[in-house]
Design a binder for these strands. Structure first.
Lengths: 111, 111, 111, 111
DNA sequence: ACCGTGGTTAGCTTTC
DNA sequence: GAAAGCTAACCACGGT
C-alpha cells in the first residue's frame, strides 16, 4: 500500500465510512461494484477516448493523403514538412538552439 | 505533355550535385516560377495540412480533457491508459494474425 | 499476380509423419513440424533473428545509459544528438537540402 | 535566454561573451573551456555513443543477412517478419497485462 | 528501374 | 529527473 493507485473512484474520500461499498442493487458479486455504476462510467470514458482517437487517426490519414497528393503533383514532401515545421517554430528559440550548437561544436573542435 | 509544372515539381532528387550557381536571390521570375503557379499550389497544400493539424491538435486537447474529467471523477488515468493500450493491442494483434493467416493460405495455394 | 508466396521451401513433402525434431511443447503457433525439416529450419532462423534483436536492444539500452551519464554530468543531450547526427551527415548533401529549402521558402513568400 | 539550457557543466560562469578565442592549453577558466576538460569529456561521450551505434549497425547487418539466407533457402521473409512481430507482441502484451493486474491489486489494497 | 508502402528507429512531449 | 507514449523521418522491400 505504499502508493495509492486508486483505480476506482470510491477510494478517494478520506471520510472512509466503510459501509458504502456494496450498494449495488443486489449485485451478486458482493462488494466490488464490478459492472456497477463506476464500471459503467469507466467504460463510458474509455469509449469516448477511443472514439476521439479514431477521429485523430482519420485526421492523420487525411494529412498523409494531402502529402501524397502534393507528391503526386511533383512536390518534395520532405521539404514541405520542413517548411511546416519551421513555420511552427518560434524564431527566438531556434536561434538560441543554434548558438548552443555552435558552442558545442567548437568545444569538440568540430569547427 | 509539356505542361510540365516545371520549376518545383522535380525536386525529389537529391543528388544532382550541381552547385547551382544560379542564385535566386534576385527573385526574378525568369526561371524559377518563384511565386508563380507552383508556388501557389504549394502554399495551398501547406495550408491544407496546417488546417488539418490544427484539428488534430484540437482533438488531442479533447482527449486530454476526457482524461482530466475521468481523473476528477476519481479514476486513475494510468490504469485507464493501460486498459486502452491493451484493447488497442488486441485489435492490432488480431488484425495481424488474420493477415498472417492470409499469407499462409496464399502460400499453400489456398487463394 | 504471382500470388504464390511460397512460404515453405519444399511443400510437397508428403512424408509428414511428424518426425519430432520438434520439441517445443509450449510453442503457441504451429510449432509442429508440418512440412518436415523445413519447420525446424524456419524455427532456427527465427530464433537466430530473435537472438540478434535482443543483442540490439541491449546495445540500444547501453546508448541510452551513456546519454544518461552525460546528462548527469551536465551536458545537454539534445544538443549531443544533434552533433552526432551532423557528424553522420555528409556536408554536400546537407548543403543541397538547404538550398532547396531556400527555394521553396521563397516560393511561398516565406522569406 | 529564457531557459537555461546548461551549455556546459561547469555552469558557474556568468561571463558569457566568449569573445576571447582562448585556445591556449592553460586555459584559466576565464572563458568557455573550449577545448578544455569539459570539451574532452563531451568528446569522449560522443565517441562512446558513436562506437555503440557502429556495433548496432553491424548487428542490424547481421539480421539482414539471416533474412537473406532464409530467403535463399526458400522461406518468405515477409511471413517470417510477421511471425516474429506477433511473438514479440505476445510477450509485450503479457507483460502489460501483468502490470495492469498489479495496478488493480494495489488499487483494492491487495498489496 | 522506379515508385509506393510499410516497418523501423529516433526524437520530442508529457507524465509521474 | 526519469519513463513512456506519440509522432515523424528513414530505409528497405516488393510491385508495377
Amino acid at each position: 500500500m505504499s502508493e495509492n493507485v486508486a483505480a476506482f473512484p470510491q477510494a478517494e474520500n478520506e471520510n472512509d465510512h466503510g459501509d458504502d461499498t456494496d450498494k449495488s442493487s443486489g449485485s451478486s458479486d458482493g462488494g466490488k461494484d464490478v459492472g456497477g455504476v463506476a464500471g459503467a462510467r469507466l467504460r463510458s470514458f474509455i469509449e469516448r477516448i477511443e472514439r476521439l482517437e479514431e477521429e485523430k487517426a482519420a485526421l492523420m490519414e487525411d494529412i498523409k493523403e494531402v502529402y501524397a497528393e502534393a507528391k503526386g503533383t511533383g512536390f518534395d514532401t520532405k521539404t514541405m514538412r520542413k517548411i511546416i515545421s519551421l513555420r511552427k517554430m518560434e524564431t527566438e528559440k531556434r536561434r538560441e538552439s543554434e548558438e548552443l550548437l555552435e558552442l558545442y561544436k567548437s568545444a569538440i573542435g568540430m569547427v
